[in-house]
C-alpha cells in the first residue's frame, strides 16, 4: 500500500528531526543540528534494509517517490512566501556571493579534471585560452 511508503518516510523524518534536536541540546545550542540530513541517511538505510528483505514493493516506493517529486513545487511555494522585499534591500549580496562561488568552483572543477588522464589531452592546450574566454562570457551573460 502507498501509505506504507509515506509512513516509512514520516518515521524517518520524525526520527531525524528528533535526533537533530537531541544533538543540538547535547551540544548546547538551541537549534536543530542536521536533522534533515540525518533523516535522509535514515531513509537510505531503511530502504536498503527493507529492499534486502523484499519488503519494498513498487506501491510502497511510490508512497515515498511522490513526496520526492513534490520537492520542486514545495520549494516554489516556499520561494513565494519569503520576505523578498527585505532581501532586495540587502543589495548585491546575492549576486556577488553566487558569482564568486560559481567562479571558484569552476576553477576547481577544471583543475581536478585536468589531473585525469585523457586520450584527447593533446588538443587541450590549444583550446585553453579560447575556453577561458568562453567562461568569462558565460559568467557575464548569467
Amino acid at each position: 500500500m502507498i501509505i506504507y511508503g509515506t509512513a516509512i518516510l514520516a518515521v524517518c523524518h520524525l526520527s531525524g528531526i528528533f535526533l537533530g534536536d537531541l544533538l543540538g541540546t547535547l551540544l548546547g545550542v538551541k537549534t536543530n543540528v542536521g536533522g534533515v540530513g540525518i533523516a535522509m541517511i535514515l531513509l537510505i538505510c531503511a530502504r536498503l534494509w527493507l529492499h534486502k528483505r523484499g519488503l519494498m514493493p513498487q506501491t510502497t516506493e511510490m508512497g515515498v517517490g511522490f513526496w520526492g517529486a513534490m520537492y520542486i513545487p514545495v520549494v516554489v511555494a516556499m520561494a513565494a512566501t519569503q520576505n523578498v522585499v527585505a532581501a532586495l534591500r540587502g543589495g548585491p549580496v546575492a549576486l556577488l556571493a553566487a558569482l564568486g562561488s560559481v567562479l571558484v568552483c569552476a576553477c576547481f572543477v577544471s583543475m581536478i579534471n585536468r589531473t585525469e588522464r585523457d586520450a584527447e589531452a593533446g588538443d587541450a592546450a590549444a583550446t585553453e585560452t579560447e575556453a577561458e574566454t568562453d567562461n568569462r562570457v558565460a559568467t557575464h551573460r548569467a
Binding site: V84, A87, V93, E116, A124, A131, N135, A138, R141
Partner: peptide, 26 residues
C-alpha cells in the same frame, strides 16, 4: 530570502554557463 536568491542566481549561472564553459571545465 537573500539566501534563496543567492542559491537561485548560482543555479541559473550553472545552467546557462555550463555548456559555454564545458571545454574549460574538461
Amino acid at each position: 530570502a537573500l539566501s534563496i536568491a543567492t542559491g537561485l542566481v548560482k543555479s541559473i549561472m550553472v545552467m546557462v554557463g555550463t555548456p559555454m564553459a564545458a571545454r574549460f571545465l574538461r
